[in-house]
Amino acid sequence: MSYPFDLDGETVWDAGYHTGQMYAFLARSAAEVLELPTGLTPNDQGGCDIDLPVFRVFVEGLYATYSSTRNPVLHGLTRGLLIASLMLLDQAGTPITLKPVHEKAFREEMVTFARAMR
Rank of each mutant, 00 (worst) to 15 (best):
S2G: 02
N71L: 08
A92Q: 04
R28K: 12
D49P: 10
L89E: 00
K99F: 08
M22A: 09
P95Q: 06
L74V: 15
L36M: 10
E108H: 13
F25P: 07
D14M: 08
V111F: 12
D90Q: 13
L98C: 01
G93D: 01
D51P: 11
G39T: 07
R79C: 00
A116E: 14
C48F: 15
A116S: 13
F106K: 02
L34H: 05
E60Q: 13
M87E: 10
D51N: 14
A64G: 11
R28L: 05
L62E: 02
S2F: 14
R107H: 11
R56F: 01
D44A: 08
W13F: 11
G76K: 08
L98H: 09
G46M: 07
M1F: 13
T69F: 09
Y66D: 05
R115N: 06
A114M: 03
T19N: 14
V54F: 04
R115G: 06
K99A: 11
L86P: 04
L34F: 07
T19L: 13
D51Q: 06
E35W: 03
N71S: 10
S68R: 14
L7Y: 11
A92R: 03
T65V: 03
I83M: 05
Y17I: 14
D44M: 08
G20N: 04
E108P: 05
A84C: 03
D14A: 11
L74K: 07
R115Q: 11
H75N: 04
Y63T: 03
E60P: 05
Q91K: 15
G80Q: 14
T65Y: 12
L26H: 11
L82T: 01
N71I: 05
A15E: 07
L7E: 06
H102M: 08
R28H: 12
E109D: 15
L26M: 13
V12G: 02
V73M: 11
Y66R: 09
E35L: 09
D49W: 14
H18L: 14
T94G: 01
E109F: 13
G80H: 13
H75S: 03
Y23S: 00
P42D: 07
L89D: 00
L81I: 09
